[in-house]
């Protein structure tokens, strides 16, 4: 689509292989929308002038609609709308079905960050690096509530649902950096759950792949960042992180994935959502035997700090299987190259 039209419609840059097609349909339908509503406005306006009431108590003719006219208009509209649907649905199918040569990146969403795991076992937070021109398939799941992976520049959006994998794919066609947004409301810091896609030229991408330091990308891993946050925000003055010591708040050791007994006898599973909720609204679940003295950290902890803290508390569970646990790929998937770049 011509650049001036993209600008006129306030659309983001068309950075993926499907963006131009989608925008063309967009422009067509929006034009029809504008023309039809203005036509109705103009028609009513003209008739108000032309047929304005000149005398009270006049009679008007009874103009009866011809059935054939009514049916004709209805069918013509149905045809027009169905045409929109045919084009739109074909595009939808293209966007939904990843090509066979797509490389897989695993995406884990949680309140409030994105984690991207590459097939070679390395991972990064909030930054997805891809080569220009290659089809990238995202296999996405959430650890707590529903999020939605949205890259406006690619015109794709897919809800990320806990308990199952959903997929999305794209082929970036312009090198550059594009924002990733969460489009499904997911709690206090929903709007701060942002990431970015870095689309590199194939040469730069190869260089990036070989960079031995990219595992950390100059940043700490999430668990140690969480540990720092716990110290900096003085969480550890009330919560112990080792076994045995009783302090003002419940211990974090072995907390994750255990059942917690609340005041009044209710028991809840200490999952990701529970941990986040306890930081944002501590009085929602008072653990039995403790006083409601913890202040809310909503507004104090930013989105990435919250996610890092949760990751840190998770790391304090009884050790089961350490290391990055990539989900099991089904047989159908292993036959492909598994997404190894």
């Amino acid at each position: 689509m011509p650049a001036w039209l993209v600008k006129l419609l306030f659309l983001p840059v068309e950075a993926s292989s499907i963006a131009a097609e989608v925008d063309a349909l967009h422009a067509t339908i929006i034009t029809v929308t504008m023309v039809s509503s203005l036509a109705v406005f103009a028609a009513t306006g003209w008739m108000v002038l032309r047929f304005r009431r000149r005398a009270p108590n006049v009679t008007t003719p009874h103009i009866v609609a011809k059935r054939s006219h009514e049916a004709g208009i209805a069918l013509a509209l149905l045809f027009l709308f169905c045409a929109f649907w045919v084009v739109g649905f074909r595009q939808y199918l293209t966007i939904e079905q990843p090509p066979d040569d797509a490389r897989t990146v695993f995406v884990t969403a949680r309140q409030w960050m994105w984690k991207f795991s590459y097939a070679d076992g390395r991972s990064a937070e909030d930054v997805l690096v891809v080569p220009r021109g290659a089809a990238i398939k995202l296999a996405m799941t959430s650890r707590d509530v529903i999020h939605a992976f949205y890259v406006p520049a690619f015109r794709i959006k897919q809800d990320v649902v806990p308990g199952r994998y959903t997929t999305a794919w794209f082929r970036a066609e312009k090198a550059g950096t594009y924002p990733i947004l969460c489009a499904e409301y997911c709690g206090t810091d929903h709007s701060a759950m942002r990431g970015e896609v870095r689309v590199l030229e194939p040469v730069d991408y190869a260089r990036w792949l070989d960079d031995p330091s990219r595992d950390r990308s100059g940043e700490q891993d999430l668990v140690s960042r969480g540990r720092d946050v716990a110290v900096r925000r003085a969480c550890v003055t009330c919560h112990s992180v080792g076994a045995g010591t009783t302090t003002t708040g419940p211990s974090w050791a072995g907390l994750y994935d255990s059942y917690v007994e609340l005041r009044g006898g209710t028991r809840v599973l200490a999952d990701e959502a529970y941990l986040t909720r306890s930081m944002m609204d501590p009085n929602a679940d008072i653990v039995s035997g403790y006083q409601p003295v913890m202040p809310t950290y909503a507004g104090t902890l930013d989105a990435s700090e919250t996610a890092a803290l949760v990751e840190y508390i998770e790391s304090l569970r009884e050790p089961r299987d350490p290391g990055v646990a990539l989900p099991k790929v089904r047989a159908v998937e292993t036959s492909s190259d598994g997404g190894t770049p």
Binding site: S37, G88, F89, A148
Partner: peptide
């Protein structure tokens, strides 16, 4: 008419992928 036609636009499945929840 304006609002309804934008509804048609959103129901055209592929466009909804960009517009949904915006």
């Amino acid at each position: 008419v304006f609002g309804g036609m934008t509804g048609v636009a959103v129901a055209s499945t592929s466009l909804d992928l960009h517009w949904h929840d915006t």
